[in-house]
Design a protein around this nucleic acid. Structure first.
Lengths: 187, 187
DNA sequence: ATCCGCATGTAACCCGTTACATGATTCT
DNA sequence: AGAATCATGTAACGGGTTACATGCGGAT
């Protein structure tokens, strides 16, 4: 069988990495994690306990997360989850994977999730490199979109063309943001 | 059983609607559809034939799509898929569903997919209304993000705060785009 | 004749979604 | 005491992803 997270090459989904990223800062209980997803903009990456509790279980089964006494209430019965050595390694590996063009094509969400968790987990040089690479990949992809648009836009219906423009502008905004983020890092 | 698309209340997934939108313009074969997803920016909404062919099958099972002789080659053995009356109705209903705040929170992708297919399927007034509603929902959501940021940003690590800014800027770009799209429609 | 790209799928697996279940606390 | 909310789950289902299967038409 082995249809679960205990297999050798298993890697978390983006939701799993998001949880791992929270636990990398400090331990939380399952409920606290589910509240963070429900109450903060992190909610984009999930919905409802129905996905979060199983995701935690999978991380635990894979040995990336372990139970620990709750930090606010050490003698209490509540247990929280903490990231393990192995979990920290897997998490860091994820943060450091190179930015590919497919990542950019598939949307910026996961890339931004990775970036958001870099402070405190990666040295500044690596963070900066990520941003430089990201900016470049965005620009390359944007150019390919523009080139495609030159050929295809005339045949598009009006709202199709406008939606296409929206995509291009969105990527340009991301590229400008990356440039400013690099400056902010350099301060 | 009835574990399939033949049940009464069944509705397509976004991928299904994307296919329906293509067929709303004119018939295509399965392969042509898969090529469109592979070769154009529509590919964001899918990957590989492994999702597309089953999606077409489900649309067919639900009676939203039917086989038809290929338009370029009417006597050939190749058959293409065409949207049915029922499919057109379901598709139009989807295009016309009100813009909710959850739609905006979950990301603009599906909203933009809907918008892209509106030309030729909805009257200009409905398209305009969609954009006005969308712009308003984006602005409301952006304000709530900004308010959240006022409270939470000081506690965020640097890259977390920067990623958060990226989200806000992205939504602002979308709002500006919507404003310009309304102008473009009014010409 | 064979080889490669066209064209159309199918099967297994995993995970996110939805909906429900249940005990413990806290409020009224 | 009863109601809401806290806190933690589980079961069923559908569909996307990955990987594989296969037959056909044209090129060499």
């Amino acid at each position: 069988m082995k249809s679960n997270a205990t297999r050798a090459g298993w890697r978390p989904t983006p939701l799993g990495y998001a949880i791992l990223g929270l636990l990398a800062a400090h331990p939380w209980t399952g409920y606290e994690i589910s509240r963070l997803f429900a109450d903060t903009p992190m909610g984009v990456h999930s919905s409802s306990p129905g996905s979060i509790y199983p995701a935690i279980k999978r991380l635990q089964a894979a040995g990336l997360v372990e139970t620990t006494p709750h930090p606010d209430n050490p003698e209490g019965s509540k247990t929280a989850f903490a990231i393990t050595k192995k979990g920290r390694k897997i998490f860091r590996d994820w943060l450091m994977t190179p930015v590919t063009r497919e990542d950019v094509e598939r949307g910026m969400r996961t890339l931004l999730l990775r970036f958001a968790f870099m402070s405190g987990n990666l040295p500044n040089a690596a963070i900066r490199r990520f941003l430089v690479d990201l900016k470049q990949e965005i620009e390359i992809y944007t150019e390919s979109l523009v080139a495609y648009g030159k050929a295809a836009r005339p045949a598009m219906p009006l709202t199709g063309a406008l939606a296409f423009d929206c995509g291009i502008e969105s990527y340009r905004t991301h590229a400008r943001w990356a440039a400013r983020a690099i400056e902010a890092l350099d301060e």
